[in-house]
Design a protein around this nucleic acid. Structure first.
Lengths: 144, 144
DNA sequence: TAAAAAATGTATTTATAATACACCTATTAA
DNA sequence: TTAATAGGTGTATTATAAATACATTTTTTA
């Protein structure tokens, strides 16, 4: 059980940007800082842009900045936007063959509840909350 | 975000056994029923045995049975026993390089909370609860 | 117009989970 | 005592998805 590095890196990009306010930050700078693939990061940043978390600017002097203040960026929202699926168990996956236990099986419902509980915790924190070492959920967030 | 089929199949084995009480069930029978790899299932069943969820019997007339009644088998316990890791984000993984954001980053703490919330829901249900189509957590379980 | 930076599409590599295969051990019944 | 049946073990292979690499395009500014 682990989120993809795709989502992981997206969160790190946002934290990096939040720590570097009032300036354009380049993808290359962030990739070098975390020592991760620049090409992979390009796609992550692009998606962060299309989902409205960062504002990207092409061309010389361009780069990326947060589109909203950290306290207005919800972590659950970011994870939901970046993680490509939440098929908690196989029966959530529409491309899989039908499990013979369905529909008389409570697993799907139970794991749906568990997944909701997981995401609800992430929904309770903003980027401002995770900038510090200890997450004091809500202390730095004004929304949700 | 998805549990491995290893854990998924383990749960299905337990459900299958709960639905076939008072008889020895063979691995081959279960593999055929779900149309999954018998070899894979052998290892899953072995681990279910070593963790005390099923009792396996070798030799002619052998097979497997639940070691306890369904209401005494906790789903969270099964998932914790079968899933090989819960590295919710990379920084939980001891084999990974150290992320430069640590230790001044609240992500690890937040995802630890989210993971706990996820498992807590699974802890609230027993095998007896998921035997029916709709999980009515606690209704069929006498413990936790 | 040159340099810098993101955008896009495709191909390749890597990691690991899943599966297959070969053989071993235990049990029972003929 | 032997054949059949069933789980146990270790290793090798395959499949899949994620991660990474590469090539090229588009945008912007000095």
């Amino acid at each position: 059980m682990e989120i993809t590095s795709y989502t992981d890196y997206a969160l790190r990009v946002l934290i990096y940007l939040a720590r570097s306010p009032n300036k354009q930050t380049t993808i290359t700078e962030i990739a070098d800082y975390f020592n991760i693939s620049r090409n992979h990061l390009v796609k992550i940043v692009h998606q962060l842009g299309s989902k409205g978390f960062v504002k990207t600017t092409r061309g010389k002097g361009g780069g990326l900045v947060l589109q909203r203040p950290p306290a207005m960026i919800n972590i659950g929202n970011v994870v939901r936007s970046m993680e490509c699926h939440f098929n908690w168990v196989e029966c959530f996956n529409p491309t899989q063959q039908h499990c013979r236990l369905l529909p008389n099986c409570g697993l799907k419902h139970l794991f749906a509840q568990a997944g909701e509980a997981y995401l609800k915790v992430l929904d309770s924190a903003t980027l401002a909350d995770v900038l510090l070492g200890i997450t004091t959920v809500g202390l730095n967030s004004k929304i949700l």
